[in-house]
Design a protein around this nucleic acid. Structure first.
Lengths: 200, 200
DNA sequence: GTCAAATCCAACCACAACGTTGGAGATGGT
DNA sequence: ACCATCTCCAACGTTGTGGTTGGATTTGAC
């Protein structure tokens, strides 16, 4: 099944396995995903998966970690004194839309692994930076102080994230997510985020 | 294993199976749940489950439908001209907290069954009633018109629901959900919902 | 050209879960 | 007291998946 006419391409194989794993895990979750399917999708076989990465759980964690590293770069965080909260929420909405994997992986994680979180320190740091971006803006009077910084940023993320958490409910509320509907949703998210953060 | 000293208690068995199924499905999801475990938890055996309800999927749908019927009564919908949007959001947050099953089931549904939704007509009607409660308030000037009614109500539900969708993220943002922290989260949700809906 | 090390593959084991089935036990009418 | 009917249970067949292992193939150094 491998297309390696001349040499071993172990790095490439690893990468393809990770890509396939991200896709499969996001789609079917930790339980619904089979190593077999990941392997064939990646043009390899099970043994390679077990050999390169450990068992299924290890692979899931690895995929989630990579995905988190990606988003950290994709939607950077500054102070919300300089960046409008609404625009930021809109960008987060866009990101969820064009790369639904992370959102789905996190939700699988929330449902299946409830307590335990891999790379907790790293992630905590990432989230703390976002909170800091809010409190900075609060100190400068650009954002309301009637909601704690960490609660506020989380709520803003809620506005952008719930749509893909329960897409079936979203559809029943607002109709099929056509391109236009997506634009409407995005506009609503932006407006709502601004309203939540607005200074008095 | 059955505790029926005198007569067959088929209704009771059905009920116990449904209760066990709700708990198991909410906890482990459609894939992680085993019929065996449902049966033993309910003090019955597999064959009863298959006989009373169909396969696993049928049972899942049944459980979800029952849960939806319950919530429809628990958090009734009126016009948001009479009821404060913040209070309503707080009640929804409370409901998610004290009965996490529905939220989890909906999220499993969103992840595992993506497209297909059982009892779509019923649910659509339920959601439409909520949207109507918003548009009524908008007509009366009690709620902003700068966000569509259906988007607005969905966003309010986001504020209350995202906490349990990604509990691990919530924890990393705002710390362990002690009783106090829950109170803070609830207050933030209430305040944010009011801000989103506030009329000019 | 040779050989040790690394990569890849196919077949295999164990086991858990779905769904079924044949029969045992209880019930209520006649 | 008997029988049709419903309820219950234990055991089974089948399938699919996680994870392993032994060996074939390729590579690069010497």
């Amino acid at each position: 099944m491998g297309f390696d006419p001349v040499a071993w391409d172990t790095e490439g194989t690893k990468r393809r396995i990770l890509e396939a794993a991200a896709s499969e895990f996001a789609r079917y979750g930790p339980d619904g995903t089979t190593i077999e399917r990941i392997a064939t999708t990646a043009g390899a076989n099970k043994e390679r998966v077990y050999n390169y990465f450990g068992g299924k759980r290890d692979l899931f964690r690895r995929v989630l970690r990579d995905e988190l590293a990606t988003v950290a770069q994709a939607v950077p965080v500054e102070s919300f004194a300089a960046v409008d909260v609404g625009d930021y929420a809109g960008r987060v909405y866009d990101y969820h839309r064009e790369r639904p994997e992370l959102n789905r992986l996190m939700r699988w994680e929330g449902l299946a692994f409830d307590g335990e979180v891999p790379d907790e320190a790293l992630r905590r740091e990432y989230y703390a930076a976002k909170s800091a971006a809010v409190s900075d803006a609060q100190r400068r009077g650009a954002v309301t102080t009637s909601i704690d910084a960490d609660h506020l940023i989380f709520l803003v993320l809620s506005l952008a994230g719930w749509w893909s958490a329960v897409p079936q409910v979203a559809r029943m509320f607002t109709g099929e997510p056509t391109e236009e509907e997506h634009a409407r949703r995005r506009a609503a998210v932006v407006e709502a985020a601004r309203r939540v953060a607005r200074a008095p």
